[in-house]
Each structure stands twice: as C-alpha cells, then as structure tokens.
C-alpha cells in the first residue's frame, strides 16, 4: 500500500513555500541588473525601512487570514492609535507611557473586531469594514482633521533612529518576525490558529476555545496596527488623520503573495515577510527606474495577479 502514496503528495507545503522566495529572487536579480544603485547598502536599508510598516501590519494580518478571516480596519487602527499617542505626548505624557497607551488602544480596538466576529457572528469582512469606517471617523473627530504634532526626541527616535547602521523600524520588524514565527510554530495558540482556519468545527470538537482564539487573532492584528501607527507617527514627527488609508490592501497583498491561503489553515509568516519584500522591492525598483507612480500601481497589481495565477496553476 505504501508504494501507492504519490510522492508529490508527501510534502505539498514545500513547493508552495519556495515559490515566493524564487519570485523575490528573480525581481531582485532583474532590478540589480537594470539599476546599479539597487544593491547598495544604503538602498537595501532604505527598502527595509520602507517595508517595515507594511510588514508589521501583514504579520498581524497573517494571524487573521490563517483563521480564515480578514481585517480591513488595520489602516484606521494605525491612524487612531498613532493619533492617541501623539495627543498624549502633546499633553506632556511620558513618551514610553504614550507608546504603551497607543499599543493598548490598538489591541482593544482589535479585540473589539474579534468580539464582533466571534460572539456577534458577523462576517469578518463586514465587521472590519464597519470598524474601519468607525475608527477612521473617530480619528478625524479626535484630531479635528488636523495633524497632531508633538515634541519628544525619544518618541521620534522610534521611527527615525538607528541602532548602529540599522534603522529602528527595521529592528521592530525583524524582532516581531521572530516572535510571530515562534508563536505560530511553537505554541498551542499557533496550532489553534491553524486548526481553526483549517476546520473550525473539528477544532472546537478537539477542545479548542475557538471564540477566544478569534478574539485573540484580531487583538494581535490591532496590536501590530498600533505599533505601525506609532512608528509612522514617530517618523513623521506628527500624527496624520489620514495616515494608513488603504494600508490594509498592501498588508493583505503581502500575506497572499507569501502563499497563505485566504481560506485559512495554510500558510506561514516567512512567506508574509517575503511578500512584503516583493511589494517593497518592486516599489523601490520602479522608483529608481523613474517609472511614473501611476504606472507603478498597474505593475504592482499585475504582479499580485501573476503570483496568484501561478499559484493556482501549480495546484492543479
């Protein structure tokens, strides 16, 4: 009997995992051939810094998508958390406390999404579409539609500083990546996320508290959105009321490009990091090549489509 098992079925994950990496490699190769600046140390750190915010949002999004959900509200949570932190700083609060308060606010907002999905049984798309609008509205109310600026070098350092040669946001991204990787791989919570996304009923019947897991994944997504909001606020020296608009789309794109299934249950955060890099490298490369920003959007969309189509044809 053993011989009847088709070898291609043995490790179906592996091919899928290599695909995004190969794609990234090809894009990097092509761009380094076309542009000499591309592979300079300065530019590499530049790219990493540019992708850090999207990567952080996408890490949180990975949890949500692995459970079969989606979180459209991350851009708005980013803006509101950033604004709250900036507001508290402007009011004279200790910068570290302001950071913690911002992170806590984002986590609570995310948990709110989770409660709507888990307890209210609202479809994730609808729940987070609604809260996306609500949180954006609250941001506009809180900021009165104007940027909030503050005066704190400690806080600004979180977005603009360097640790040796490495930009601080890149450190945030790499540390977060390692933590997320370990959580998904080595904790019961990680397993519960995959099980819930793969088959909710089977997970429930195996003793997984599915409601709790759902609330947690949206809370994690909110936490990462808040962290991104703080970094963005720090980098710009002010909180913008429209910050993060449409960022959720790039975050979703990074997750999908990384090979994580929108149906849930399958995927990995390393893919998400690669996906975020693909988007970032593409943006950067097209800039270096002086491609107009209008065309850049067309190219980016086409690359996403191409990646997903390749993925489909491989699975057939």
């Amino acid at each position: 009997m053993q011989t009847e098992i088709k070898t291609e079925n043995l490790k179906p994950g592996r091919v899928q995992q290599i695909g995004p990496l190969v794609g990234l490699g090809l894009i990097i190769l092509a761009l380094s051939l076309i542009s000499r600046e591309f592979l300079s140390i300065t530019n590499i750190f530049n790219v990493l810094r540019q992708i850090s915010i999207n990567a952080l949002l996408a890490f949180g999004m990975t949890f949500v998508i692995l459970t079969g959900g989606i979180d459209l509200s991350v851009g708005s949570i980013l803006a509101l958390s950033g604004a709250l932190s900036a507001g508290m700083l402007a009011g004279g609060m200790d910068p570290w406390l302001a950071v913690l308060a911002g992170l806590a606010a984002g986590t609570v907002m995310g948990a709110g999404n989770g409660v709507l999905v888990a307890k209210g049984k609202v479809a994730p798309f609808i729940a987070t579409l609604a809260t996306m609008t609500i949180f954006r509205g609250l941001t506009l109310v809180y900021t009165e539609g104007r940027p909030i600026s503050y005066d704190s070098d400690t806080f600004a350092m979180l977005g603009k500083g360097y640790f040796f040669e490495i930009p601080i946001p890149v450190i945030w991204m790499l540390v977060s990546f390692v933590i997320v990787y370990l959580i998904l791989k080595n904790t019961p919570f990680g397993r519960h996320v995959y099980a819930l996304g793969g088959n909710e009923e089977a997970a429930l019947l195996s003793g997984v508290r599915t409601d709790r897991v759902k609330i947690r994944v949206y809370a994690v997504s909110g936490l990462f959105a808040a962290l991104s909001g703080i970094i963005l606020t720090a980098r710009l020296n002010s909180a913008q009321p429209t910050a993060g608009t449409t960022y959720e789309l790039d975050a979703i794109a990074a997750v999908v490009l990384g090979g994580t299934s929108l149906a849930g249950g399958k995927g990995w955060v390393t893919g998400t990091l690669i996906g975020a890099m693909i988007i970032g490298v593409l943006d950067n490369g097209l800039n270096l090549l002086n491609v107009s920003s209008f065309y850049q959007q067309v190219v980016k969309g086409a690359v996403i489509l191409l990646a997903v189509l390749l993925d489909r044809s491989r699975k057939k």
Binding site: Y194, A195, G198, N199, E201, A202, G265, K266
Partner: peptide, 8 residues
Amino acid sequence: EQGLVLSR
C-alpha cells in the same frame, strides 16, 4: 467535517 483538519 468534524473530525479532522484536512489541510494539516
């Protein structure tokens, strides 16, 4: 439907 997470 209830016993297994087929994708894992």
